[in-house]
Design a protein around this nucleic acid. Structure first.
Lengths: 253, 253
DNA sequence: CGTCACTTTGAGGCTAGTCAACGGCGGTGG
DNA sequence: CCACCGCCGTTGACTAGCCTCAAAGTGACG
């Protein structure tokens, strides 16, 4: 059995505001164009750019976010590449989907986006989006930022990582958020809960923790854990990629 | 080694607008209260409600979304419960985090939220949020809805499921989105890509597909796959829980 | 017609889960 | 005050689902 590429018809270029005629269900452009009151629509969304498999990616991990992409036809995938060159797909995006949402909160792209089959995307430059969000209340902006942040975390943890990688990433995450003045990380949840969250058996959590302790990377104390070698844990957790985003670099304003 | 609960001090009730004094970094309330121009702040966020472990959950899976919860102190976990009664934790929420964001797009709560340790949350009722979002452009609303939707999918797929469960869930998802008039699902990506996405080896994807075919649940054809028994796949994929959300029930307007 | 990527099938190994048992700790109640 | 109980953490032995490795078959394409 062989799967065929979904055939995409590349219609000739049309008027820029043909988003109103967009056949894609729930397409960002159609919805937006129909009610673009007061905004210069042309700077919000440029319709229909072709993307081909094997061609230059829409964007690459590590770059600052420059635009969101609304899929109009075909299929886009986002993926990360580990140290060995293996790619790990984080998401497939079909017509109507938006690519790049997990980078919205800090403008830091965590994955690379490329076409799976010949595709069409509409481009929503970051400038217009920033102006749009700036018009919202602080409350609304926080809502958006927090959702994007949680999405980034969920995508990072959904990867296929070893027990050591997941636990190290989790501990670093907790360390950033829970560390007290004396360097102690008081984990509020039980090991059972941690394992449940990280898809590990309780016993595996315990064994892995003991392993870290034996390596001298942390110490388990009565009241919590003390990280003794953050670099070592970072080295382990690096493929998971949640250490970087938690220290936002504040890219493009 | 035993982890201790983080000690939470329950200060006596104070003025409702003490969000300005909220010590939580990046707290939704503090940010919002500081710039609550034109909105009745009291209907946006009610400060400081105590939540205790073992007590009634903040909300339960299956309910309509009635409020978001901003964690002020302690730790909240969200989890699903499978047919065997096992809970699967989907997220831990620490001070400054918002709980319930994955339900924002369709008001359908996919998980149950409970306190891990004695905690405090601020409540943001759905009514105020809806009014807030209604004030945004259609574009902004779509942005929010799509991010929430993708978050829900990422959280669902991040669970610890068998190859059969993940593949069945994936196929149902694709079926909903890609099925053509003749009932054929033309998958644009390769089995290698599918496996990469679902954290499965290519061989496992192939074997599992063949297994489904042998059961008579689907047929692999030249141009794609044909689902012959959606109920059977639903039964397999049920624990993953991405079948329900894809048929939004349109709860509270 | 050769190449290449993808799919398919088989055999073996490894990571992590399961099962079982024990120690420690806190809470509860006699 | 202490015995009892339940939950949590810890350790060991075994198991199983999935990955790895290897190789052959298939279709697309130049």
């Amino acid at each position: 059995m062989a799967f065929d590429a979904a055939p995409i018809r590349f219609t000739p270029a049309a008027a820029t505001s043909d988003c109103l005629l967009c056949p894609v269900r729930g397409c960002l452009g159609r919805v937006g164009a129909a009610a673009s009151a007061g905004t210069a629509w042309s700077e919000m969304l440029a319709p229909r750019t072709a993307v081909m498999p094997g061609a230059k990616p829409l964007f690459s991990a590590g770059e600052p976010l420059q635009a969101l992409y609304s899929v109009r036809g075909g299929c886009i995938k986002t993926y990360t590449v580990d140290a060995d060159g293996n790619e790990r797909i984080r998401g497939f995006y079909l017509p109507g989907d938006l690519v790049g949402l997990d980078a919205l909160h800090d403008s830091h792209l965590r994955s690379t986006a490329a076409a799976v089959v010949p595709s069409q995307v509409c481009v929503a430059p970051i400038g217009g989006l920033r102006r749009l969000l700036a018009g919202h209340s602080e409350f609304g902006q926080q809502l958006m930022a927090q959702t994007s942040r949680e999405l980034a975390l969920a995508l990072a943890l959904s990867g296929n990582f070893t027990a050591e990688q997941r636990l190290a990433a989790f501990l670093l995450n907790m360390q950033e958020r829970l560390v007290s003045h004396d360097g102690l990380v008081r984990l509020p949840m039980t090991q059972r809960d941690i394992g449940n969250y990280l898809r590990l058996a309780t016993e595996t959590v315990c064994r892995t923790l003991k392993g870290f302790e034996k390596q001298g990377w942390l110490a388990c104390e009565d009241k919590g854990i003390r990280v003794l070698s953050t670099p070592a844990l970072h080295r382990i957790a690096e493929p998971v990629g949640i250490c970087q985003p938690l220290l936002p670099v504040a890219h493009a304003a």
